[in-house]
Write a protein that binds this DNA or RNA. Structure first.
Length: 487
DNA sequence: TGAAATGTTGGGGCG
DNA sequence: ACGCCCCAACATTTC
């Protein structure tokens, strides 16, 4: 029987990896292994499929680290990672032909450009006699299966959360296979170094290197650390950017180094063991926000480009001022909490969620720059860049999204700073030129007496910028602009 | 997962 | 003692 021929001439399967760079809790990997044929894992760097959101700079850096990590994990399991570059369908068709593969396994995606890609792949390969087998795993529930009583997708978070909570618990995570059956002959692979995923200037990536460890092992370690030390205090600490109170799992989730089922199960188990059934809820609500974003993107594929509420198409954005945009990007707006956030993003590829809301609100409402412009910057600079979460969150802040913050809800960057960074620790870390200011003034240095500023070594307009816009004036202007979208 | 404007209340100063 | 005003402090409404 062919079954006894472990490494014989049996037709192999291809395991097409994308945002599922892990071995555990990986339904398509498990299915490929259980199918019994040799498995050829492949990652295709596809910068050519039209309409795709190509990974930005920070994501490409992370991807390189993650692929390295995955490669060694696969080797430890007796396998390899094949790297190919090019248009996805062509690359996979070629690989199937080279290897004589009869089946291709993959995890489905929910982005608008991935869905036609998967459909066309299936069409192309079936003509060549190759079977496509598609699995879930990236989110908790398939979007087709979650709907309200009318059969429509949810547009409001709370009912969505209730509907999801009422379902059976997400399935138990799958264990990683001990080993992957290897083909007798491995196909050619690109060299990762030749892909140029990491910036040529090492200075740019040094902050990323210092801040993160990519890969499945690091992801699981972080989850355990978070559950062990931080879950209990999450409700109170999650909004304070100056403390390490969040999970920081977002980049691991974005690349599929860990799956939401694993997180869900681990959090619930920890809560049960602590005898506090509801301990995990505040954090799991955030996981469900991610879920909600994916479902929204699935049902409304234009979410990354177009306002969910069409009346916002008429919004009178200010004609883009490149120098304002540059100031925001580089953390030179003159509002310390905004600038600290934007610098954290630039240096570490990540920004605390509370500060994301403040910085995004500032760009949209104080500077009246279209939310898509900020979305594009985040897409390029975030290591956790994720089309669904990014698009849904920017639209949430803009007020144009499903279940969004009302437009007139305008964050006051001074009050937000004082409320969530009361001692100024966060600002001090990322805006060191302000670090000698007292907490009472660190969020509004322009109100400090000149000798106090001098004593702290601050020269407004030189060492640290004056506010780009006056808050009260900007607020009035934003509210006036809002009149245009009121029906 | 707001902020600011506006309204209300009640204590205390003062003629 | 009384009415009047001022203005925190808190509550409600509006943006």
């Amino acid at each position: 029987m062919a079954r006894t021929e472990k490494t014989g001439s049996e037709a192999p399967s291809i395991l097409w990896l994308r945002k599922d760079l892990r071995l555990s809790d990986h339904p398509s990997l498990t299915a490929a292994v259980e199918a019994g044929a040799p498995v050829i894992p492949v990652y295709v760097l596809d910068d050519e499929t039209p309409g795709a959101w190509k990974p930005g700079g920070a994501s490409r850096w992370w991807l390189a680290q993650s692929l390295r990590s995955l490669e060694s994990a696969l080797q430890a399991a007796g396998s390899q990672l094949i790297l190919r570059r090019g248009e996805g369908i062509a690359a996979l068709s070629a690989l199937a032909e080279e290897t004589g593969a009869k089946t291709i396994f993959f995890t489905r995606g929910y982005e608008p450009y991935r869905r036609p890609l998967e459909a066309r792949l299936q069409e192309a390969l079936s003509k060549a006699g190759v079977e496509c087998r598609r699995f879930g795993g990236h989110i908790l529930f398939e979007p087709e299966r979650i709907a309200n009583n009318a059969g429509d997708p949810f547009r409001v978070y709370t009912p969505f959360f209730k509907a999801v909570s009422a379902r059976d618990l997400p399935r138990a995570p799958l264990p990683a296979p001990k080993s992957l059956p290897a083909p007798s002959k491995w196909p050619r692979s690109d060299r990762l170094e030749d892909w140029g995923l990491e910036p040529a200037k090492p200075a740019w990536a040094s902050g990323l290197r210092e801040s993160w460890a990519a890969g499945e092992q690091a992801a699981r370690k972080r989850l355990l650390l978070f559950i062990e030390n931080m879950l209990r205090g999450y409700r109170d600490r999650r909004n304070i950017p100056g403390v390490d109170g969040t999970s920081r799992l977002s980049p691991h989730l974005a690349f599929g180094e860990i799956g939401p089922h694993q997180i869900w199960r681990a959090v619930l188990t920890a809560a049960e063991e602590a005898g506090r059934h509801d301990m995990g809820e505040p954090y799991l609500r955030e996981i469900v926000w991610r879920e909600f974003s994916y479902h929204l993107l699935f049902h409304f594929p234009s979410l990354p480009e177009k306002a969910f509420r069409p009346e916002f198409d008429a919004f009178p954005w200010v004609k883009t001022k490149p120098e304002w945009m540059r100031a925001w990007e580089k953390g030179r707006t003159g509002y310390p909490i905004v600038d600290a956030g934007m610098r954290q993003l630039w240096q570490t590829g990540w920004m605390h969620n509370r500060v994301r809301m403040i910085a995004a609100s500032f760009l949209i409402k104080h500077l009246l720059v279209p939310w898509q412009t900020g979305e594009a910057w985040f897409w390029d600079t975030l290591v956790d860049a994720d089309l669904a979460s990014n698009a849904a969150s920017w639209q949430w802040v803009a007020g144009s999204g499903a279940d969004a913050a009302p437009y007139f809800r305008i964050f006051n960057p001074v009050l937000q700073g004082q409320k969530f960074d009361p001692d100024g620790d966060y600002v001090r870390e990322f805006c060191p030129e302000l670090s000698k200011l007292p907490a009472s003034l660190i969020h509004k240095p322009w109100e400090a007496e000149s000798d106090l500023l001098a004593g702290a070594g601050v020269r407004l307009g030189e060492t640290y910028p004056k506010p780009l816009v006056d808050h009260a004036e900007a607020r009035k202007r934003a509210l006036a602009a809002f009149e245009a979208v009121k029906k």
